[in-house]
């Protein structure tokens, strides 16, 4: 009796396996194609599977995101009244890692991410108007796509730890951490001369600022072991509203403060973050002009060979 069942299962399993192998075969060839194209980096007309007649997969961040705001503004992906005109056919994601994974899995995709999160083993950052996306180029102004990291506190806050921590971030020591993590530090800072008060405070908000803030908190713990700082990772708006309501002592935002937020909070730019335009490693394109990026994101150009 049982034998029969096993044979039935086996037969079905082999059927599924055959199907899986069939699909797998197709995938393998495309993977080889990717490799071939990748090794031929820089070549104008790449061979292998790369077919420039294919549609560009445009990947964008969500409306309201600090990254998207800075990107559309700086590349001019806007209409006459400064409204965001990113093509509606663009894929949207709210996560840097999804953006990176999508671009690394799809040869014809283009996207943009924070320079601090860029992983060159997965994707390729293209030069914009000949300038590479590096911290130096942003500082000297040749690479223009960047956005501020803001933190905000209530002006009447009485939390000593929060004040001292802010002083630390805006000191030489704090800004060293900023540049060490690949972000662009704020100029004109002095050495930390805080009082190292005892107590606790809550910092929370944008998940883009969070990795940097984590490092800052660890560096601060070394100079002031008396204080304990909690880090809440959520998003820019939650960061600002919670700072207004008082559940966070310091809010973080990876965008400019909105007027209604600026009315209640005191914002400080603690660092600048570059935005890298990324493509698949199998894509032979190394250099794009700002106008090309603009027309891709407006939806005027939909295939790679039309650029």
């Amino acid at each position: 009796m049982k034998m029969k069942k096993f044979i039935a299962v086996l037969a079905a399993a082999s059927m599924v396996a055959t199907m899986a192998v069939g699909c797998g075969g197709g995938e393998d060839t495309s993977a080889e194609g990717t490799d071939a194209a990748a090794t031929e980096e820089g070549g104008e007309a790449a061979s292998g599977d790369w077919d420039a007649a294919n549609m560009i997969t445009v990947v964008s961040r969500e409306e309201g995101s600090g990254t998207r705001g800075a990107f559309t503004e700086l590349f001019g992906v806007v209409d006459d009244e400064d409204n965001d005109m990113t093509t509606l056919d663009a894929q949207v994601t709210n996560s840097t890692s999804v953006m990176m994974t999508t671009v690394s899995e799809n040869e014809y995709a283009i996207g943009y991410i924070s320079l601090g999160s860029l992983d060159e083993s997965l994707v390729k950052a293209v030069k914009i108007d000949g300038a590479e996306a590096t911290a130096e180029n942003i500082e000297n102004g040749s690479y223009k796509v960047s956005r501020p990291f803001n933190v905000a506190v209530k002006p009447d806050s009485t939390n000593e730890v929060a004040k001292d921590f802010m002083a630390f971030i805006m000191s030489t020591e704090g800004q060293e951490v900023v540049s060490g993590e690949g972000y662009i530090p704020v100029a004109d800072v002095e050495a930390y001369a805080g009082s190292a008060p005892e107590g606790s405070c809550v910092v929370g908000g944008s998940s883009s600022v969070s990795p940097l803030m984590e490092k800052l908190i660890e560096a601060y713990a070394a100079v002031n072991p008396n204080a304990s700082i909690e880090l809440q990772t959520s998003d820019s708006t939650t960061g600002m509203t919670s700072a207004i309501e008082g559940s966070y002592d310091i809010g973080m935002a990876s965008r400019e403060l909105k007027d209604e937020e600026a009315a209640e909070l005191e914002g400080t730019v603690i660092a600048t973050d570059g935005i890298a335009v990324i493509v698949n490693q199998g894509n032979p394109t190394d250099d794009l002009s700002a106008d090309q990026v603009k027309s891709i994101y407006l939806g005027d150009v939909t295939t790679w060979d039309a650029l």
Binding site: S97, M99, T101
Partner: peptide
Amino acid sequence: YVLSSEGLYM
């Protein structure tokens, strides 16, 4: 989720 969201700790 937090580790994966910025792609730094995949």
